[in-house]
C-alpha cells in the first residue's frame, strides 16, 4: 500500500488536542507509505476526496455538533471511516441519532455481524466518548460494547467506530485503507 492520499478530517476545536487525536492517525497513514492530507472541518470540506478518516476529539469538545452543516459535503462520499466524534457525525448524516452515555477507558467489544472491517469475536478497545450512537436510518450495528453500539456501517463504504482504534486496534485503520485500495 504506497503512494495514495488519505484525507484526515480534524475534529478538535482546541489546538492542543490536535497532537492527541489527529497526529496518531497521520503517523499510521504515513507508516503505511500513504500521504496524509489533514483538513479541519471548519476550513470547508467541499473539495475533500476519499478515502476519508474523521478523527475523534476531546470529551469536552462538542463544537462539531453545532456545525453539522460543515459535514454536508461528506453525505455521499465513500469510503469513509469515522472515529468517535467522527462516527457520531457520520451516524447523524446517515439518519442515526445520539444519546448521552459515558464510556471512558478500555472495554471489550463484541463483533456480532460479519463485516469486512472488524475481525470476528471480541477485542479490547479504548473509549473516550460521552455520546453514543442510536442505530436508525442507514446505521447498521456491527459490534457492541455491552448493549451499546461500538461500531456500525451505513452503506458499503461508510464505517463508524465509537472507540479509538489508533490505541489498540490499528489493524482496523489498516483494513479500512486496504478496503479503499481502489481509491488510493
Amino acid at each position: 500500500m504506497t503512494g495514495g492520499h488519505v484525507t484526515i478530517i480534524a475534529m478538535p476545536v482546541q489546538r492542543l488536542h490536535m497532537d492527541e487525536f489527529v497526529r496518531p492517525l497521520v503517523d499510521i497513514v504515513a507508516r503505511l507509505g500513504l500521504a496524509p492530507r489533514v483538513i479541519h472541518y471548519a476550513e470547508g470540506l467541499r473539495d475533500v476526496e476519499p478515502p476519508i478518516v474523521l478523527s475523534g476529539t476531546g470529551i469536552m469538545d462538542y463544537a462539531y455538533l453545532e456545525r453539522l452543516e460543515a459535514f454536508e459535503p461528506l453525505r455521499d462520499l465513500e469510503p469513509i471511516l469515522g472515529i468517535c466524534a467522527g462516527a457520531q457525525v457520520l451516524a447523524l448524516l446517515r439518519g442515526g441519532a445520539l444519546t448521552d452515555g459515558e464510556l471512558i477507558g478500555t472495554f471489550d467489544v463484541e463483533v456480532r455481524r460479519t463485516n469486512p472491517l472488524l475481525p470476528g469475536g471480541r477485542a479490547r478497545a479504548y473509549f473516550l466518548v460521552t455520546k453514543l450512537v442510536v442505530p436508525r436510518g442507514d446505521v447498521e450495528p456491527l459490534a457492541y460494547v455491552g448493549e451499546n453500539v461500538a461500531a456500525f456501517m451505513a452503506g458499503d463504504g461508510t464505517y463508524g467506530v465509537m472507540f479509538h482504534p489508533e490505541v489498540y486496534n490499528e489493524d482496523i485503520i489498516v483494513r479500512f485503507l486496504d478496503l479503499s485500495k481502489g481509491r488510493l
Binding site: Q14, H17, D19, P24, D27, I104, G105, Y126, T130
Partner: peptide, 27 residues
C-alpha cells in the same frame, strides 16, 4: 498508558475540565 490516561480523563470529566494529552501515542 490507558490506565493512567483514562483516570485523568474521568477526573477531568467529573469536574467539567478539558483534558489534554499532547504526547499521546507519540513515538
Amino acid at each position: 498508558s490507558t490506565f493512567q490516561a483514562a483516570r485523568f480523563q474521568r477526573a477531568a470529566r467529573r469536574l467539567g475540565l478539558w483534558c489534554f494529552n499532547p504526547l499521546w501515542l507519540m513515538d
